[in-house]
Design a protein around this nucleic acid. Sequence first.
DNA 1: TTCCTGACTCCAG
DNA 2: CCTGGAGCCAGGA
Length: 133
Amino acid sequence: MKKAIKKADINKKPLKKAPSTGVKEYSFFQDVYDVVRQIPKGRVTSYGAIAAYLGTKLSARMVGWAMNGAHNVRPAVPAQRVVNRNGMLSGKHHFGTPTRMEELLKKEKVFVENDTVVDFKNKFWDPAEHLGL
DNA sequence: TTCCTGACTCCAG
DNA sequence: CCTGGAGCCAGGA
């Protein structure tokens, strides 16, 4: 059993502003990163699922926004494992090259066709189910 | 400060 | 089945 972030924390945390000069972000971002890092290799999840797990179901966009800064975060965040609710690689244009995200997934045996994860339903990994609701 | 945009979703037509 | 609008909220102009 790992960390299993407490979603209750999200609402209590002050959400202090990040210094514009630093890499540090809102604690919400950190929580998103923690969840993403726990996605098993070869599995994927959605922005909405992460948002829901963190208790901010209506803010799926913020999860995507968090991914926007994930490239500068250490340890690395496997952002390629996060797709939209239809299994489409909506964030592929943020990986440097248009095919980078797809390539990364392919290495994990997650195949992509037409910008969509093949057998998405089967590879879907729900954080609420595996990290404890 | 206000206005606009966006790696999302849900819901109504 | 597809399209559009609304809610979400952090950043940039």
